[in-house]
Design a binder for these strands. Structure first.
Length: 335
DNA sequence: GCTAATGATTGCGT
DNA sequence: ACGCAATCATTAGC
């Protein structure tokens, strides 16, 4: 009876082959359409995958140096500081990675289980009705499609979490660290020994960056800030200026027998460089700085003459120096 | 907690 | 692209 029923059903299925074929074609067409509609999301999925890979979320966690945080040279502080700043980021990223992988594993397992379940069900049904392998594949494909959509959502939310984390913890401005003493020394030494022209060249910046363990852009920032702040309140920096000029002059004396001055490989149009100012530059500077230490009764310091070329441009001249500017013995054409 | 110092960012001019 | 000036945001000293 059962086999008779089965054969009847097979017969009916055979008769309706055409219609079922067309139904299949319809399904196929629909699925193609669906796929076409999903094309942009697929591109999006690819982007998500790439990003997760780049952030070190997709691949298994690496131990040791340079695990995650990146290759992106986030400016901010010396290497030590950077690693401190990034350790929190790495910890949080690790958390995200763990959650991502466990969720992914969960979904994949659920997908496998559901597929097996449905396959078994179809096999079960195949005993009472004809089930083509195509039908099976179709069902499996549908299930996979659904789970892919879920995965996409998971990836998207993971990406969002990583982005938020990045902006929160790797924003250099938020995690500002003071430079190391070494870096500050190196920068100040250069600044005060080139006070007449504190504009280091690109190579000099690179060298200073290397010596101080900071980035070139940090060197640029530092000089930008320093010039402005020095110009704004020259008096405040006099102690520092004296300290550093004395330091460099003694260093020059010690190294004097070697022939090279304090700036071995840092050519600058200031005191070292193509102009024969080298030997006298620093000393003159020191003398000027020392003379400069005695502020006028009004408490306003006159600008040291040699520096005025870069300071004069925008710095408001103190009222004590009128238009005649008798104090300016600048070695300009005016004299 | 307040304040000065300081590194980074932004907008503008050159 | 670079520098200046103003400003923001954080750190460090008190």
């Amino acid at each position: 009876m059962k086999s008779a029923l089965f054969s009847v059903l097979c017969e009916i299925k055979g008769k309706t082959e055409n219609t079922s074929q067309s139904a299949c074609l319809f399904h196929l067409a629909m699925s193609i359409q669906q796929h076409q509609e999903e094309d942009p999301p697929d591109a999006q999925l690819l982007r998500l995958d790439n990003m997760l890979l780049a952030e070190g979320v997709s691949r298994p966690e690496k131990r040791g140096r340079g695990a995650a945080a990146g290759t992106t040279a986030t400016p901010g502080g010396c290497p030590n500081d950077t690693s401190i700043a990034h350790s929190d980021y790495r910890a949080k990223l690790s958390q995200i990675r763990q959650i991502y992988h466990s969720e992914l594993e969960k979904y994949e397992q659920a997908c496998r289980e559901f597929t097996t379940h449905v396959t078994n069900l179809l096999r079960e049904q195949s005993r009472v009705r004809p089930v083509s392998s195509r039908e099976m594949e179709h069902m499996v494909g549908m299930i996979h499609g659904k789970f892919t959509a879920i995965q996409r959502q998971l990836k998207q939310s993971t990406c969002e979490a990583v982005m938020t984390l990045r902006s929160r913890l790797l924003d250099a401005r938020r995690k500002r660290r003071n430079f190391s003493k070494q870096a500050t020394e190196v920068l100040n030494e250069y600044f005060y020994s080139h006070l007449s022209n504190p504009y280091p060249s690109e190579e000099t910046k690179e060298e200073l960056a290397r010596k101080g363990g900071i980035t070139v852009s940090q060197v640029s920032n530092w000089f930008g800030n320093k010039r402005i702040r020095y110009k704004k309140n020259t008096g405040k920096f006099q102690e520092e200026a004296t300290m550093y000029t004395e330091k460099t002059s003694t260093a020059t004396k010690v190294r004097g027998s070697g022939g090279q001055s304090s700036c071995q490989s840092t050519p600058s149009p200031g005191s070292c460089g193509p102009f024969p100012l080298t030997s006298g530059g620093d000393m003159v500077l020191t003398l000027r700085t020392l003379a400069f230490l005695q502020p006028p009764p009004g408490g306003v310091c006159l600008q040291p003459p040699t520096h005025s070329s870069w300071q004069r441009a925008t710095a408001p001249q103190p009222p004590s120096s009128p238009a005649g500017d008798s104090g300016s013995f600048n070695s300009d054409v005016s004299n």
